[in-house]
């Protein structure tokens, strides 16, 4: 209180000074900071000592397969799930002590839509805004604005039960924006949607990102992570395996290009050995054997494919592509992201 008024006098401003005096960031300037964060359920260590931090305006991703601990980490950041160990600071506050204070500044899109199916699209937005203590005079125009943002104008009066999966997802995202949050948390935002609905959603999220909203996204889709995230961590079995921008992760952990070769079941293993033995690979290239295909990691995909074919190997299908985060994950864990 004393500090507040001193501060106010010093800057000579009314509410702006009062607002600024509440430092809404961690000591290191980040919005979210986790150190050695742990969450256990009985014997299971769902999140096993992870470190990460998210800065203002950043789009941060947690990439990993199902069961990697992404959603558990997300629920701790959402300041509902209590951590078992480690440190977590969000907007300068400890979620174990000041959950409601932190949650007032968050927008949360959970993995499963938990909309109220019995009431309309518009009612869902207004009712949810009330929980933040917002008055109807604010919520009525806000709901209209969010209905436009979610492209649900024709469905505004419809019961949510009658909406398609993609529409429900957009409504859940719109609902998370009703309190104009400082951080938007999105847990698997496009899982279970058809390709078209995913692209509509990505477009909406990209607009938020452009507007400077801080985003935290969990996903097991590498294309989603590549499109939306400025920076990400790769998670597996409760641990962080690597961290960086999508481009730097690919540069560090994979080759420039990948040749995918299919020789038919049962022949992949032997062919891989033959390719390596015949010296068809360039410096630093390597072969990965999957149950259904071979992946040749190489700098020059077309040239490598040409050498393989020239050596007499006849793949049933072949494909040359650029390396992706999927390859990074495979390299780091020996497993693929979507199983």
């Amino acid at each position: 209180m004393k500090r507040d008024s001193t501060h106010r006098n010093a800057t000579g401003g009314g509410i702006s000074a009062a607002l600024k005096s509440v430092a809404l960031e961690n000591a290191d300037g980040s919005l979210i900071s986790a150190r050695g964060l742990v969450k256990t359920f009985g014997q299971l260590r769902a999140v096993d000592g992870i470190d990460f931090s998210v800065g203002k305006g950043e789009a941060f991703g947690l990439l990993g397969p199902n069961g990697a601990g992404k959603s558990t980490a997300m629920r701790m950041v959402a300041s509902v799930s209590k951590r078992t160990g480690g440190e977590l600071s969000i907007l300068g506050m400890d979620p174990s002590l000041r959950g409601p204070d932190i949650r007032a500044h968050l927008g949360v899109v959970p993995q499963e839509d938990n909309l109220d199916l019995e009431i309309s699209v518009r009612e869902n937005l207004v009712v949810y805004g009330r929980y933040f203590g917002l008055p109807f005079s604010y919520l009525r125009p806000k709901a209209e604005e969010l209905i436009d943002f979610a492209q649900l104008r024709e469905k505004a009066r419809e019961k949510v039960d009658n909406l398609s999966g993609g529409m429900k997802r957009r409504l859940t995202i719109a609902r998370a924006l009703v309190n104009e949050p400082d951080i938007l948390l999105l847990d698997e935002p496009t899982t279970g949607l058809d390709p078209q609905a995913r692209h509509v959603l990505w477009d909406r999220l990209f607009r938020l990102k452009e507007a400077g909203v801080t985003l935290v996204i969990t996903t097991h889709y590498m294309d989603e992570a590549e499109q939306l995230c400025d920076r990400l961590v790769v998670m597996d079995r409760g641990h962080i395996m690597a961290e960086g921008t999508p481009a730097s992760l690919i540069r560090e952990h994979s080759s420039r290009e990948v040749v995918e070769l299919r020789f038919g079941s049962g022949r992949n293993e032997g062919t891989a050995a033959a390719i390596s033995a015949a010296g068809l690979l360039g410096e630093g290239d390597r072969v990965e054997v999957l149950p259904d295909r071979l992946l040749v990691y190489t700098q020059e995909g077309e040239a490598t494919l040409a050498r393989v074919v020239a050596s007499g190997q006849r793949p049933i299908t072949s494909l040359v592509r650029r390396s992706s985060l999927e390859d990074v994950f495979l390299r780091l864990t020996g497993r693929s992201l979507v199983e």
Partner: peptide, 28 residues
């Protein structure tokens, strides 16, 4: 929530005051 407010300003309908302004320093 300045960033989100910018987004708000882009919408067709808009609230006169932002959420942060209405709720004051302690938003909860």
């Amino acid at each position: 929530g300045g960033a989100a407010a910018e987004l708000r300003a882009g919408g067709a309908a808009r609230a006169a005051r932002g959420a942060a302004e209405i709720l004051g320093p302690r938003r909860s």
